[in-house]
Measured scan of single mutants.
Amino acid sequence: TRVETATETAWISLVTALHLVLGLSAVLGLLLLRWQFPAHYRRLRHALW
């Protein structure tokens, strides 16, 4: 049971790290898009909202 718990903890930390990385890359990508294509971003936002 001790090994299982350790594996579970490792998986949880791995998944958390993955989610953090994905979230950060998504935010960075959005910022980059907004910085590179302001007109396109505004049009996209206008279409979405």
Rank of each mutant, 00 (worst) to 15 (best):
T1S: 12
T1C: 11
R2P: 13
V3M: 07
V3A: 05
V3D: 00
V3C: 04
T5I: 05
T5S: 00
A6W: 04
A6M: 10
A6G: 13
A6D: 07
A6F: 07
A6E: 09
T7G: 09
T7A: 11
T7P: 09
E8I: 04
E8V: 01
T9M: 14
T9H: 10
A10I: 07
A10R: 10
A10T: 10
A10C: 03
W11N: 01
W11K: 01
W11I: 08
W11G: 02
W11V: 08
W11M: 08
I12W: 06
I12G: 03
I12R: 11
S13F: 14
S13Q: 10
L14C: 03
V15I: 11
V15K: 02
V15L: 09
V15P: 01
T16N: 03
T16Y: 05
T16P: 05
T16W: 09
T16V: 14
T16L: 11
A17N: 00
A17C: 12
A17H: 02
A17Y: 00
L18S: 01
L18I: 05
L18W: 10
L18Y: 03
L18P: 05
L18K: 02
L18C: 05
L20W: 07
L20R: 00
L20Q: 03
L20S: 07
L20G: 10
V21N: 02
V21I: 10
L22N: 04
L22S: 09
L22Q: 05
G23D: 03
G23F: 15
G23P: 01
L24F: 10
L24S: 04
S25A: 14
S25C: 15
S25R: 03
A26G: 11
A26D: 02
A26I: 10
V27F: 13
V27G: 11
V27N: 02
V27E: 04
L28W: 07
G29T: 15
G29I: 14
G29W: 07
G29H: 00
L30E: 00
L30M: 14
L30A: 13
L31Y: 14
L31R: 05
L31W: 14
L31G: 04
L32M: 13
L32F: 06
L32Y: 06
L32I: 07
L33A: 15
L33S: 03
R34E: 02
R34Q: 07
R34S: 09
W35H: 14
W35Q: 11
W35A: 11
W35V: 14
Q36L: 11
Q36F: 08
Q36A: 15
F37I: 08
F37S: 01
F37Y: 15
F37Q: 02
F37V: 07
P38D: 14
P38Y: 11
P38K: 10
P38G: 09
P38T: 07
A39Q: 14
A39F: 08
A39W: 09
A39V: 15
H40A: 11
H40S: 10
Y41R: 05
R42Q: 13
R42Y: 14
R43V: 09
R43Y: 08
R43F: 08
L44G: 03
L44W: 08
L44S: 03
R45L: 07
R45D: 04
R45E: 04
R45W: 02
H46A: 09
H46G: 09
A47Q: 08
A47V: 09
A47F: 09
A47T: 09
L48V: 11
L48D: 05
L48I: 15
L48C: 14
L48W: 08
L48T: 07
W49E: 01
